[in-house]
Computed example of a mutant assay.
Amino acid sequence: MRRDLAQLLETGQDQTARIRVEHVIQEEKTMSAYDLIVLYCELIVARLPIIESQKRCPIDLKEAISSIIYASPRCADIPELLEVRKLFSAKYGKDFTGAAIEVRPDSGVNSLIIEKLSARAPDTDTKIKVLTEVAQEHNIKWEPTAFEENIEVHQMDLLVT
């Protein structure tokens, strides 16, 4: 995907690159979230005997368990997370599960997981940063100033209409 972005920048297709960079950023955020999910799953597996022996969620596992529960509906391509959520819901109750899914105060969900799985579009600075990195990685001479000016003109056009 980054190579495709580089080709767009090289051929002067900044508008298309501006749109596609959002997808690249979202994919990178998702992959980063998956890395955290894997670590949390490994921690949970390693501590299963503790989980089985206690009625309440162990304090040192609350972040991992809550974050897995939070991620379960947001990672549809990992259906096993929904099964794990059901198991934790049966063990700790629907209130515990609901708090994690809704990110209530003291739910324990890792803020990085929340940010990485957010569907919010990246801001202009993030887009420019990634496009600049891609240009540097592929030795492409690309100036973000034209890109920034184009965005400002486009935003002004939207305000005028």
Rank of each mutant, 00 (worst) to 15 (best):
T97Y: 00
K94H: 14
L82W: 02
F88G: 07
S67E: 00
A64F: 04
V103A: 00
A100H: 10
C75E: 04
R85L: 14
E83R: 14
Y70H: 05
L82R: 15
R104P: 00
R74F: 05
S107A: 09
A90W: 10
E83V: 13
E80Y: 12
D95E: 13
P79I: 10
R74G: 05
R74N: 08
D106L: 10
C75R: 08
R74A: 05
S67W: 01
T97H: 03
E102S: 10
A64S: 14
L82Q: 15
A64C: 04
S72F: 00
E102F: 09
L82M: 13
K86L: 08
P73K: 08
K94S: 14
P79L: 08
S66G: 03
I69F: 01
A71P: 03
V84L: 15
E80D: 14
S89T: 15
R74K: 15
S66A: 13
P105W: 06
F88Q: 10
A71Y: 01
Y92G: 05
E63S: 11
A71N: 03
E102D: 10
P73G: 06
G93E: 06
S67A: 04
I69Y: 00
G98R: 12
E63M: 13
V84D: 05
A71G: 03
S67M: 03
G93K: 09
F96H: 07
Y92L: 06
S66D: 01
K91I: 03
R74L: 15
V84E: 07
R104M: 10
A100D: 06
I101R: 07
I69G: 01
A99H: 01
F88P: 08
P79M: 11
F88M: 14
P79V: 11
R85G: 02
K62T: 07
G93P: 04
C75L: 15
A90H: 14
R74P: 00
S107I: 01
K62W: 00
A90P: 00
T97L: 07
A100Q: 09
L81P: 04
A71F: 01
F96K: 03
D95Q: 14
Y92A: 06
I68L: 14
S66N: 04
I69E: 02
G93I: 13
I68N: 08
A90G: 12
V103Q: 08
S72A: 15
P73W: 03
K94I: 11
A99M: 03
G93V: 10
A100M: 10
T97N: 01
P73L: 04
E83F: 09
C75K: 08
Y70W: 06
F88A: 11
R104N: 06
Y92Q: 10
I78D: 07
R85V: 07
L87N: 08
A90I: 12
I78K: 13
V84T: 14
S72Y: 01
L81Q: 09
D95H: 12
K86Q: 12
K91G: 02
P73I: 09
E63V: 13
S89G: 15
P73E: 05
D95A: 15
S66Y: 02
P73A: 07
E63G: 03
A64N: 04
Y70V: 02
